[in-house]
């Protein structure tokens, strides 16, 4: 067992992990963060996407020991973020989900895309969201939701939707 120090959603945690433990397991089973979904376990579906130092990464393909010292943000941590809340409201408003299983991953990925470039054009948004799969096929609504939250990331205006 090794001790890792991570900042999960703004809280510093010391966690004891095995060498071969996968971050997805640590988050779900040791820390009880269930917005990070476990589906394919092989880096294809992207439902376990978390933000590590503000970059979206697939937690099923990361060793827990490898993220020692990093800042991890999941959908739970975005709940108190003003901009991300607007993005979440936009998802609801546009009906950008059916079963909702992929929603946390899409919200975190879109949040990182818009935070890093609020001027992102439609093509760039589609490109950045490519890593997450929605089996219900609500891609159109998801993209519309992200596009309409874009203005708020840019200048804080809330009027677009």
């Amino acid at each position: 067992m090794k001790e890792i120090r991570i900042n999960v959603n703004g809280v510093f945690r010391h966690v004891m992990v095995e060498d071969n433990e996968i971050l997805l397991d640590t988050l779900r089973t040791r820390l009880g963060i269930t917005s990070v979904k476990a589906a394919c376990w092989r880096g294809e579906c992207g439902l376990c996407t978390v933000l590590i130092d503000n970059k979206p990464m697939k937690s099923c393909m990361l060793l827990s020991v490898e993220v020692d010292g990093s800042e991890i943000l999941t959908a739970e941590g975005l709940y108190n973020n003003k901009r991300a809340r607007v993005l979440m409201e936009s998802f609801v408003k546009h009906g950008a989900m059916q079963c909702g299983f992929c929603t946390p991953a899409f919200v975190t990925t879109a949040h990182s895309a818009l935070s890093s470039n609020p001027d992102a054009d439609d093509q760039e948004i589609s490109e950045k969201l490519k890593g997450v799969i929605c089996r219900c096929g609500t891609y159109f609504q998801i993209k519309e939701a992200v596009k309409s939250a874009r203005a708020f990331y840019k200048d804080g205006s809330h009027e677009t939707f």
Binding site: D19, N20, I22, D25, L63
Partner: peptide, 16 residues
């Protein structure tokens, strides 16, 4: 720790 079986877990190793 995990559900067991391949795909979900990694074989044991020492991490350096």
């Amino acid at each position: 720790m995990s559900f067991g079986g391949p795909y979900f877990t990694l074989p044991k190793f020492k991490y350096l």
